[in-house]
Simulated assay, not measured.
Amino acid sequence: MLRPIDPERDLDAMHAYRSREDVCAYIPPVPATRERLAEIYRDPERTRSVLTEAGQTLALAVELRATGELIGDLVLFWHSAEHRSGEVGYIVAPEHQGHGYATEATRALLALGFDGLGLHRITGRIDARNPASGRVLTKAGMRQEAVLVENEWFKGEWSTEVDFAILEQEWREQRDL
């Protein structure tokens, strides 16, 4: 189940996975202290539940419906109104990886982007050293478009980025199957 992030209720659970080196290895955030996460999520821009204009980011909590346990969080970036473009990203606690939650949540974000915002194209960018994340995007219906070899100095080393994307038309065709 996806819901808005509650900065107080979710802080301990988010800290449990966002403070881990292995979880943050391939994503921009570095492992965060509890205090730093509390500071980040005090900003109402980080906990918005509706996107009203390009340039905004929607961050949502992922919880298990049966227990209400927070198991991850994800984002939808609305990059451009003119180009009708967006991007998805996600983090799932290691003990909950491999169960399809990231794929299911990503599909929900794709639906929001295409059906709710009228986007034309949504991308997902991963580090090549994280093939499990590539499988998530592929299962969500995205296709690999590019491999940008050592394109970014990232956390002290060169990183190769793999870009995935899906167009609105492709999304609609998949949903009609």
Rank of each mutant, 00 (worst) to 15 (best):
A128S: 12
W78Q: 00
L58K: 14
E95I: 02
C24W: 03
S49C: 05
G55H: 05
H99T: 00
W158D: 09
A108T: 07
L60Y: 15
V136N: 13
D43P: 00
L74A: 12
E87V: 04
A146R: 01
D115I: 00
H83D: 14
A13T: 04
T160Y: 10
S159L: 15
T160E: 06
C24Q: 04
G100I: 01
S159I: 11
R129K: 11
N151D: 15
V30H: 09
R42C: 13
W158F: 15
M142A: 00
G124I: 01
R48A: 11
P7S: 05
R175K: 08
A59P: 05
T138H: 10
T160A: 07
N151L: 11
A128L: 08
A66R: 14
R3Y: 13
L117D: 06
E173K: 10
G86S: 01
V62F: 02
P94M: 08
L177Y: 13
A61W: 09
S133N: 11
L37P: 13
R143L: 04
I122C: 10
L11G: 01
S80W: 03
L110T: 00
R48W: 07
I91D: 10
E53W: 04
L109W: 10
R42W: 12
Q169I: 15
E161G: 15
D6R: 05
L2E: 08
D10H: 11
R84M: 12
G89L: 07
L2A: 07
Q144V: 12
E69P: 00
T138C: 05
E69S: 03
A165T: 12
W158R: 15
R172C: 02
N130K: 04
H83T: 10
A13M: 06
A13Q: 07
P4S: 05
Q169L: 14
E157W: 14
V149Y: 03
E104I: 06
H83I: 11
T47M: 06
G98D: 07
V149K: 06
E173S: 10
V88N: 05
L51T: 03
E82Y: 11
H120L: 02
S19D: 01
